[in-house]
Amino acid sequence: MAADRKNLSDDELRKLLNLGDPAGYGDEPAPEELNAMRRTVLNSIDTSPAAQPWFSRSLTTAMATVAVALIAISILLQAGPWGEVLQPATGPVTPAEPAPPTTQEPPPSQTVAAVEEVPDVVVTEPSPDSAAELPAAAEESVVAEEPPALAAMEESQGLAAPSEGRQPRTVQFTAPGGTRIIWTLDPDFQLPVSEPDSQARGEL
C-alpha cells in the first residue's frame, strides 16, 4: 500500500475515485426487488386534489374566497343601516328646475322657495312670517307641494306629518354642478326604535 502520497493530482484523484466507485460493487437490486419497488411506488400515486399543481389549488381557493366575499358584501349592503341612508340618493338628486308658479297658497310647513340667486347654503328659520320675508320673485315660484322624491322618502321611512305647533326648517344649497338641493328638517321626525342610527338621522 502506498501511504506516502502527500498530494494527488486531479487525474490521480479521478482514477482513484473511479477505481473505488461504490456503484461498481455489482450490488444493484435484483429484478424481483426492482419489481416490488416499482409496485410500491405506483400504488402510492396520489390522485387527490392536494396532488394538483399549486396554482390550480390556489385558483380554486381564490375563486371561492371572492365568491364568499361578494355574497357577504351584498348581504351587508342590503341589511346594513347605510342601505337606507343611500336609498333616497336616487330620488331627490334631480336637476332643480324652477317650479311652475301656482296660485295655490302653500301652507307654511311645506314652503320651499326657489330663488334665482341662491347662496351656497340658506337656512330658513321657521317663523310665522317667513313667507313674507321671501323676495317677491321667490314668492311667485313657491312650490305648493313637496318634491315627489322627498315625499316618497318620508313615506318610505314612515315619517309622521309635522305637527302644527313646530314648523320644519328648510336648508337650501346649490351643488357645484348647479343642482339645487333643498332639505326640509322635520322637528317631529322619529325613526323606528329598531333603527341603530335613528339619532343621527333624526337630526336631519
Binding site: M1, K15, L16, L19, G20
Partner: peptide, 20 residues
Amino acid sequence: VWSMGNTADPESVASARSAV
C-alpha cells in the same frame, strides 16, 4: 489506501473502494 501500480490487484481494489 492506494497504490497506483496495483490497480489490477483485487486486494488493492478492495482497499481503494473502502478508502474512497
